[in-house]
Each structure stands twice: as structure tokens, then as C-alpha cells.
Design a protein around this nucleic acid. Structure first.
Ligand SMILES: [Zn+2]
Ligand SMILES: [Zn+2]
Length: 834
DNA sequence: AGCACGCCGACT
DNA sequence: GTCGGCGTGCTC
């Protein structure tokens, strides 16, 4: 290429004409790039970070350009890039680097990660559309065509146009691609590019144009006896008009227009129109100003401000109890970043992304904020994405995927409730948004603030080791005191006091007091339904889910037995399917039962319940919170949902109805989760001027987590739990990856797991730092009609883990194993180990 | 992940 | 004989 450069240097700088080949990745679990030639006319457009349409395998696919090169393996036949839909890259160099890191770290395909980093709604496949042509119709009529060809012809004649995929779906096993190709090469059917579809990126609009080549006499003649048509034609002559506009000025234009079209006087043209963001629909709030800082806040902010001023990467843990004013510190960091021309990403847990959260940021930053909530349509999502890329907003508030917000000048990343499990994606790519954010911030020289009242052990231990700056807020703002936590032993309640109710006497009394004083209460129970265990009194038959290894939960309001994992349900049973006994026992309790019982105890109280069953619709959700704020609810009963994203100043009592529930989960993190959950729930009490009271009802009060919760002693819990983890050699003292194996046939799945262990064996000998645990049956051995096994890999540091997993994925034996019916999934740094 | 190709049992 | 099952390997 050097020679050519010299020749052309006279006219132009040759390097700007671009490279010859592009490295392309697809949304596939492949550790591979594919090289395509770049046609001369696309050299300018093809840049790293653009999408390309190419033919790949049998069909056409969207790929992502991740690199350019002038050299390639001569043994591989290359195909050309067909189209470049983007005029500028969708991913910056920094975002390409980040997605690459995620792919390597979490063992996903680069293209899969890129897909996850882009807004949904950018189309992936561009399938050809087939229709009858040439001799096709005759071949169908004559009935001479081979059966498989006949079926395709028949389908096309009935449906008009179909893609290969649609035909496959319609004909099922009868579909044969060779037959399709035969018909195509014979010309009996032809393939065309599909009509451009309306997409997130574009909308289609039709414009009416007046034909210019028609003589005036001809026009007069054609319209002489059609007054209405003449009128419409005159309007159209003034200027081209879109059908959307036309329908506004002339409702019911349609028949007239088609007559004009028929007479050849006008034509319609279809345009791709880039979508625009409708500013009038945006909600803005009048900006409020910053409240003053407490001494503690000021000290923490000073340290963060110093990092910000340097403009270098830093990560800090902001450990602050509920109500200590973490949010205000976030806001001030964002403001400081904005002053320096930097943008900010605010990550919040999915469940905390409520209108109240949105309002807080909107009221402070007005229209410089984009809220990426789950209610957005693909189109809205894309428009917001583009506003971020184009610098029209400077702050993004969103859940996990907001870590990919395409800012070019990132200054601050806030991760609120850093310990929340929803930051880990539970499908591929299984990235952790907190960890991805830290990597991104390092690349972009940004500041990370990890906020939590109960940091994850990993984060807190990193802070302790000096990897993060450790900032603390120990006091609640104002006069508010920490709530008083009472531990209630439910065994004493039951055995000594003969109280078999869900509610202990203490809690009942406290609820009564609140009702008298007109204060509000929360009752927290992390389980839905009425009874979670339904059985036959005569023979002991238990109603289990046929697809999962869990029992079915009875839901009284719908009178159904429901599986909370797969949705399987039965009508309320009248007798035992085994012995026909007619006495069915409903044992265990959930929020529905709690609601019933609370209503019985407090018939005059205004009681509401908030869980997945009642909050199906967003409106009921918001309604509930409005009522709560208006003081129209006395007791709110609910699951996790009531603990996040909302402040209720008048709540002075919190009852944790069954605290042991989360401790029973068979996972090494269950203590940590319980501590976090209980602390968070307790934190809901007494945020205003009235001190709060918390009753924690438990059956296993000897569990060490309880005293720590009662005394708000995070530090003590941390020390205690770290000791346990060190003894067991679990994170943060080690790194884990779990290979999950699942299949429909029990025996086959078990065989596959053993084969996996065998395939791993030589790798384990090579990577001696890696230890294998198991394989063992997963805690939820059956889930959604599949048998599940776990094989855990453990190391001291991450790198050897990444190396062995990469080697495993590259191993032909593993690929062969994984191509079968049994599914293998790799989860690095797993959070949910059930 | 799809998707095509190819090699074996059980139907007309 | 053919139809259709699934195991195997590839995609620039
Ligand atoms: Zn029975
Ligand atoms: Zn189930």
C-alpha cells in the first residue's frame, strides 16, 4: 500500500481514504471477529463503532465494526460490506474498549456486549422477502412441483410476501431451504429487500407530490367535473405535503387522493425521516437549590471535590446510614462536574427508579437530565440515547444499563445502593454495572461514588485495602435519631404465650399505638401469597410445582395455587389428587395472609398491600404512594417493593414479620443479604421528627446477624462476616465462577455435567491456581422444567479464572459438549447462586 | 446462537 | 424406496 500512497499523495492525504478491511463482530456468543472488505465508496463511512449490514452465513446480519486493517489471511474468502446505516459511530473508542473488557471478563461475545450497550430497537436482521414470479404461479397450478417446493409456492400465493424465517415458522419441519433455493434459481420466486420498516431510528412518512409532466389542458379536462378533487389538487400544487399533515387540514382526503393518483396527476413518495425528540412532551420541574450541608457531609464532599478537581480516576465508597444525606452529596458532585463541562451517570437499583427518584433529579437539574426507566418504548429509548450522545443532556439516571450512556465527557458516576443485586445482569452478558462503571471511569478519568448504608463485603473490603477512598456519614440529618430496634422471639410468643398469630403481641400493641396517634406503619414480609405450602391432611400429599422443585403458593384473592418461579398454576384444590381426602391444609403465610390477618386485628385501620400481585400496573403503584403521602393509609403491607425509592416521613413503626426468611436461603451470601435487607427496612422508620421503632420478629434469634441489626452495627457485622468468608475461602477472599448446566432430561444432564468435569480436568492441571468445587445439584434442582447442576471454579485472584474459562471456551471438546441440547452457562462473579 | 448438511430408523 | 429425526461443524 505504500507505493499507492506515494502516488496519490499529490492529490490528497491517502490515509483519510480509510482501510481496506473491517473487523466485524456479531451478536453471538463467539470469541471471534470476521473480516469484511470495504467497498471503495464506503471507505469514509466505515469506522470502528459503526454498524454494517453484511451477508453472514446464509442470511444478512447487522454487525459491529470493531477495528480496521489493511492485512488479512489470504486463505479466507472475504465478503464485502453491503451497507453502512450509521453516518457516525454508535460507539466511541472508549465504549469499544469497555465492551471488549466486559466480553473478556464475563466470557461473553463482544458483539453480545455491544448489543447490550446500544438502545434496543436498532434492527438486527435484514431478511429478504420472497414472492411468486416467473413460472411460479403455473408451477403451483399444475401441481407438478415437488411437495416441498409446492408448500413454499402455496404459502407465498396465499400470503403474498414472506421471509425465509416466516416460511420456516409456518411450514415447520416441512420447510426445506434447498427447495427455496431451487425455486429461486429457477426464477419461480424472487427475493427483494424488504420495505423499509419504521424503526426506532427512523419513521416513515409519505409525501404527496404533484406530477410535473402533465399539461394544463389535460389537468383541466380530468378535473372539469370533479370539484372536490380540483380543490385538493390546488392545495397540493402549493407545496409537497405529508399525509400526516394532509389529514390534519383535510380529514377524509383518502378517496379523493386515490382518484387523483389514478388519473396520474399526483404521486406519493415514501421517505425515511429521522425521528426527532419532542421537547414539549418532556417533563421539567422548576429547579430547586441545594440545602446546606452538615459538617459530616461537608467533610465527605471536600474529599470528593478534590478528586473531581484533579480530573483523574478515583473510586470512593460513601458509607452512610439511611437519611444521612448521601443524595445531596451526589447532587453536589454532579454539579461540580457540570461546572467543569463533565457529564454524570447515576445508577440506581431497578426497583428504586420511581417517579419520586426522577422528580428529585429533575427538580434539581431540569431538562439536563434524562431518566432511563423501564417504561420507555424502544423509540423513546433510542431518542434519549441520541440526546445523550449529542450532548443535549448532561445527566442520566437509570438502572444497570445506564452505565452504557454514550457520554463523551464523563466526569462522575454515582452508584446508589451499591450492594444491590439488580446491578448484576442475569442473562448474557452477565456483567455487574458497578464493576463495569469502575472500569469505564478509569478509562475516562472519571470519579466513581459508591453509595450505601450497607456496602457489599467486596466493596467495603476494597475500601479497607485502600483501593477506594472510604467516606462515612454516621449521623442522620436534623434531629432524627436512629430507630430503636426490638428483637421479638416468636418461639417464646408461640410456646409460652400461646400466641399463634403472625403478629406478636408487642407488634400488635405498637400498631395499635400508631393508629391512635395517627401515625403510619409498615409491615414487611418478603413472600407473596396466602399460604406457601399446601398439603393433604390425610396422606400428607404436597402440592408441588411440576416444573420446579418448589411447592406451590396459594393466592387467596385469585383462588389459585401458583409457582413463583415459572408461573404454573392450578385452581384451588377441593380434594387430594392422591387419596381424594377432602381436608386440605394451607400452611405458611405470605403478604396476602398477613393482610387478611391484620385486617381482622385492626378492622378500623386503613390497610393497603404492595407487592408484585397488587402493583401490576404502574398507576396502582403511584396511587398507593400518593395515598400514603396524603395520610390515607395507616398500615402498608408489602415486600421489598416498599423499601426502596420512596420516603414516607410519617412512618414511625416498621414490623419485620418473618426475619428468618432470607436467612434460610442456601447461599453463602444469605447473612449479608439479610443484614442489608433488615437494615434497609429498619431505616424506613422515623425519618421525620418522630423517632422510629422497629420490631424484628424471628424464630432463630440466636443467629449472629440479629444483634448487629439491632445495634445498627455495620462495622461489627462486616468484621464477623469477613471472618466467616475467610474461613470458608469465599469472596471477597476468593473469586468464583459458576458453570451452570441445565437440561430437560435428568440422566442426560447428569452425564453432561460429568463430561464437563472431565473436559475441565486437563485445564485444571494447567491452571493450578484454580480449584473446582462440585459439580453438585443446584439448590433449585428443577426450574422451569429443567434439571440444573452447578460446577464452581474458585481462585484467589480474577486473572487465572479468566484464563481457564477462556481456555475452556476455546476447547473443541467443550464446544462440542455445549452444542448439544444441554445448556452451559458461565457466570463470573455470580451473585445469585441458586 | 442459527442453520445447513449428512447419516441412520420407521413409515408409505 | 422416502421422510424426518438429530448429531456436527461453520459462519469472513
Ligand atoms: Zn391425600
Ligand atoms: Zn414452577
Amino acid at each position: 500500500m505504500a507505493a499507492r500512497s506515494k502516488q496519490t499523495a499529490f492529490f490528497d492525504e491517502p490515509s483519510s481514504t480509510g482501510s481496506l478491511f473491517a473487523e466485524v463482530v456479531f451478536n453471538l456468543p463467539l470469541d471471534q471477529t470476521f473480516t469484511y472488505t470495504i467497498p471503495e465508496n464506503l471507505r469514509e463511512q466505515v469506522q470502528p463503532g459503526v454498524r454494517v449490514f453484511v451477508s453472514f452465513g446464509t442470511g444478512r446480519q447487522t454487525g459491529y465494526v470493531v477495528g480496521l486493517t489493511d492485512q488479512t489471511d489470504p486463505d479466507i474468502k472475504l465478503k464485502p460490506i453491503l451497507e453502512v446505516p450509521d453516518s457516525e459511530p454508535l460507539l466511541s473508542a472508549s465504549m469499544l474498549e469497555l465492551t471488549r473488557w466486559i466480553a473478556d471478563y464475563y466470557q461473553a461475545g463482544w458483539g453480545e456486549v455491544i448489543r447490550a450497550a446500544l438502545p434496543a430497537g436498532l434492527e438486527e436482521e435484514i431478511p429478504e422477502v420472497f414472492h411468486l414470479a416467473g413460472q411460479g404461479a403455473e408451477a403451483l397450478e399444475s401441481g407438478n412441483a415437488p411437495k416441498k417446493e409446492f408448500l413454499i409456492l402455496d404459502a407465498l400465493s396465499k400470503k403474498g410476501k414472506r421471509t425465509a424465517k416466516q416460511l420456516r415458522k409456518q411450514l415447520g419441519a416441512q420447510f426445506n431451504s434447498a427447495a427455496l433455493n431451487n425455486l429461486r434459481s429457477r426464477g419461480d420466486i424472487v427475493a427483494t429487500l424488504p420495505n423499509a420498516k419504521s424503526s426506532a431510528q427512523y419513521k416513515l412518512q409519505k409525501t404527496v407530490l404533484v406530477k410535473q409532466d402533465v399539461l394544463q389542458e389535460e389537468i383541466d379536462r380530468l378535473l372539469s367535473r370533479a370539484k372536490k378533487q380540483k380543490e385538493l389538487f390546488a392545495l397540493l400544487q402549493k407545496k409537497p405535503i405529508t399525509l400526516a399533515e394532509l389529514s390534519k387540514v383535510w380529514p377524509g382526503y383518502s378517496p379523493l387522493l386515490s382518484q387523483l393518483k389514478q388519473k396520474g396527476l399526483v404521486e406519493t413518495r415514501q421517505d425515511k425521516q429521522e425521528r426527532t425528540w419532542d421537547a414539549s412532551r418532556a417533563r421539567t420541574e422548576s429547579p430547586t437549590t441545594a440545602p446546606p450541608f452538615t459538617i459530616e457531609q461537608e467533610a465527605a464532599y471536600q474529599k470528593l471535590g478534590k478528586h473531581l478537581a484533579k480530573g483523574k480516576f478515583a473510586c470512593s465508597l460513601l458509607e452512610g446510614v439511611t437519611g444521612s444525606g448521601k443524595t445531596e452529596i451526589y447532587m453536589r458532585c454532579i454539579e461540580k462536574g457540570l461546572e467543569r463541562g463533565k457529564s454524570a451517570i447515576v445508577l440506581v437499583p431497578e426497583i428504586a427508579l420511581t417517579p419520586q427518584t426522577a422528580y428529585r433529579f429533575r427538580s434539581r437539574f431540569g431538562n439536563r437530565v434524562a431518566i432511563l426507566h423501564s417504561g420507555l418504548t424502544n423509540i423513546e429509548r433510542f431518542l434519549e440515547w441520541r440526546r445523550i450522545r449529542d450532548g443535549e443532556v448532561s445527566i442520566v439516571v437509570g438502572a444497570r444499563s445506564a452505565v452504557f450512556a454514550p457520554f463523551t465527557q464523563l466526569g462522575v458516576v454515582i452508584i446508589d445502593e451499591e450492594h444491590d443485586g439488580s446491578y448484576k445482569q442475569d442473562t448474557s452478558p452477565r456483567y455487574h454495572a458497578r464493576d463495569a462503571a469502575i472500569v469505564r471511569a478509569r478509562q475516562d478519568n472519571a470519579l466513581v461514588v459508591l453509595g450505601s448504608a450497607t456496602p457489599s463485603l467486596e466493596t467495603r473490603s476494597n475500601a479497607q485495602q485502600g483501593k477506594y477512598t472510604h467516606l462515612k456519614l454516621d449521623k442522620r440529618i436534623g434531629k432524627t435519631l436512629m430507630p430503636v430496634v426490638h428483637l421479638v422471639d416468636m418461639r417464646i410468643e408461640r410456646d409460652k404465650r400461646k400466641n399463634f398469630s403472625i403478629l406478636s403481641r408487642q407488634l400488635q400493641r405498637a400498631l395499635g399505638e400508631r393508629l391512635e396517634r395517627g401515625e403510619q406503619s409498615f409491615l414487611f414480609l418478603n413472600r407473596r401469597g396466602t399460604a406457601n405450602y399446601v398439603l393433604c391432611k390425610a396422606c400428607g400429599f404436597v402440592f408441588d410445582c411440576p416444573n420446579c422443585s418448589v411447592s406451590l403458593t396459594f393466592h387467596g384473592t385469585t383462588r389459585k395455587l401458583l409457582c413463583h418461579y415459572c408461573g404454573f398454576n392450578l385452581p384451588q384444590p377441593m380434594d387430594c389428587p392422591d387419596c381424594k381426602g377432602e381436608v386440605i391444609r394451607f400452611s405458611g403465610f405470605g403478604t396476602q395472609k398477613l393482610e387478611d390477618e391484620t385486617r381482622k386485628r385492626f378492622p378500623d385501620a386503613r390497610i393497603a398491600r404492595l407487592d408484585r400481585d397488587t402493583a401490576r400496573k404502574r398507576s396502582t403503584f403511584e396511587d398507593m404512594f400518593d395515598k400514603m403521602n396524603a395520610g390515607e393509609i395507616d398500615i402498608l403491607i408489602g415486600t421489598q417493593m416498599i423499601t426502596k425509592g420512596h420516603d414516607f416521613p410519617n412512618v414511625t413503626l416498621v414490623g419485620v414479620v418473618y426475619a428468618d426468611l432470607s436467612l434460610h436461603v442456601p447461599d453463602f451470601r444469605s447473612s449479608e443479604r439479610s443484614f442489608q435487607l433488615l437494615t434497609q427496612v429498619a431505616g424506613r422508620a422515623g425519618r421525620g421528627e418522630i423517632p422510629g421503632e422497629v420490631f424484628v420478629q424471628a424464630h432463630q434469634l440466636e443467629h449472629p446477624v440479629y444483634p448487629f441489626v439491632a445495634r445498627h452495627n455495620y462495622k461489627g457485622f462486616f468484621a464477623h462476616e469477613m471472618e466467616m468468608r475467610e474461613r470458608l475461602h469465599f469472596p471477597p477472599y476468593s473469586r468464583l465462577a459458576v458453570v451452570e448446566v441445565e437440561g430437560e432430561i435428568e440422566r442426560d444432564t447428569e452425564v453432561a455435567v460429568q463430561q464437563l468435569a472431565e473436559v475441565l480436568h486437563p485445564h485444571l492441571e494447567e491452571h493450578i491456581q484454580v480449584e473446582m468445587l462440585g459439580p453438585a445439584r443446584a439448590a433449585l434442582y428443577r426450574l422451569q422444567d429443567r434439571y440444573r447442576w452447578h460446577l464452581i471454579l474458585r481462585t484467589d485472584t480474577h486473572q487465572p479464572l479468566q484464563d481457564i474459562l477462556k481456555a475452556l471456551r476455546a476447547d473443541k471438546a467443550f464446544q462440542k459438549l455445549a452444542s448439544g441440547k444441554i445448556k452451559f452457562t458461565i457466570d463470573v462473579d455470580p451473585l445469585n447462586m441458586l
